[in-house]
Design a protein around this nucleic acid. Structure first.
Lengths: 162, 162
DNA sequence: TTGATTGCAAAGCGTTTGCAATGAG
DNA sequence: CTCATTGCAAACGCTTTGCAATCAA
C-alpha cells in the first residue's frame, strides 16, 4: 500500500512532465486496485474523489503513464483497454467465446518468452499480452446439445459421408 | 488456391445459413490473401468485384465466419481487427511501440500452450492471440540519444536539489 | 408464404482534438 | 512571462442497428 509519491514525481520531472493532482490520483487508483481497471472504472473511482476530473484527462494521463511504463495496458476483444500498475504481476486471459467467462493466467505460462524475443529480435522493454479464446466446458456441452436440436436431430453414428 | 465452394456451403447450411454471393466473395478474398486483412482491406477488395456490397454486410459476414470458425480474428492495439483463413498458419505479432514496425511470429513460439490450457481448464477450440510490444533496436538507440539531448544534457552525478 | 439476408442511412459509443482558461516555475 | 496541463464541447471513426426491400426454399 505504499506507492508513488516523490519517486514518481521525479520520473515525470526528468522527462519534463509534472505530477499534477489528477495524474497522482489516477496512478494511485491503479496502484491500489487489486485487479486491472478499465478506463471507465478508473474515471469512476477518480471522480468519486474529485468529480471535476475530465475523461479527456484520464485518457491523456493513461497514455502518458503507459509511455513512461508506470502502468501496463491490456486488451480483451470487445472490452475497453484495461490498466494495472507496472510493478505488479502481469497476467493473461482465457475467455469463453460464448459466456465470456474470463480466467486469469499467470505470466509464468509463457516462460522465458520475453527473453527469447529480446535475443532473437533485439527488442527492448518487452511487454506481452496473450488472449486465448475458446469454449469453456459448460458452454461446449451446451453447444453439442444445440447441434442435435431442432434442425439436425438426425446424426447417426457413421459420419463423414462426403 | 483451391478453396471454399461446396463444402463451405454445407457448413453454413447445416447451421441454417446460406452461402450468398456476398459471403462467398468475402470468404474467398480472405482465403486468397497471403496475409491477414483488415475489414477495410476486405471491403476494398470485395467492392472491386462488386461495388454494391455494403460495409454492414462485411461486418456481419466476418462475425458469422468467425463464429463458424472458418476465419480467425486477430487484434493489434490501435488497428482494426484483422482476419485470416482458419486453415492457414496462425501467427502472432511483435510490435515496436515507437515506429510501429511489426514482426510476424510463428505459432510454434508458443509450443503446446493450447494443449496445456485445454487440459488444465477444459476449454475447447482454443485460439491464441499474442501481442508483444517493445522498442526495436533502432528506436531503442534513438531513445537513448534523446534522453541526453536538448533538455537533460546536464546529468551530473549528484541530483535532487529541487 | 416464410424466414434469411442485404443495403442504406441513422444511431451509437468510445476516443481524440481544438481551444481558451488555469497554474507552476 | 512561458509553457505544460486541464476541462469542455465538438469532432471523429469505427461498428452496430432498424427497417424496408429482396431473395431462396
Amino acid at each position: 500500500m505504499s506507492h508513488s509519491s516523490n519517486s514518481t514525481d521525479e520520473i515525470l520531472r526528468k522527462r519534463g512532465y509534472r505530477l499534477t493532482p489528477q495524474r497522482h490520483m489516477i496512478l494511485s487508483v491503479i496502484q491500489e486496485a487489486n485487479e486491472h481497471l478499465s478506463i471507465e472504472q478508473i474515471a469512476e473511482r477518480v471522480q468519486q474523489i474529485n468529480p471535476y476530473v475530465s475523461l479527456s484527462t484520464v485518457y491523456r494521463t493513461l497514455d502518458l503513464l503507459k509511455n513512461l511504463e508506470l502502468i501496463r495496458e491490456g486488451h480483451i476483444p470487445g472490452e475497453q483497454a484495461h490498466y494495472e500498475a507496472a510493478d505488479g504481476q502481469a497476467h493473461h486471459h482465457l475467455i469463453c467465446r460464448r459466456c465470456r467467462q474470463t480466467i486469469h493466467l499467470d505470466t509464468a505460462l509463457l516462460g522465458n518468452l520475453d527473453k527469447q524475443l529480446q535475443e532473437q529480435y533485439h527488442f527492448h522493454h518487452l511487454a506481452l499480452d496473450l488472449v486465448a479464446t475458446g469454449y469453456c466446458s459448460a458452454c461446449w456441452q451446451a453447444i453439442q446439445q444445440e447441434e442435435q436440436g431442432p434442425e439436425n436431430l438426425a446424426e447417426p453414428p457413421a459420419r463423414q459421408s462426403q
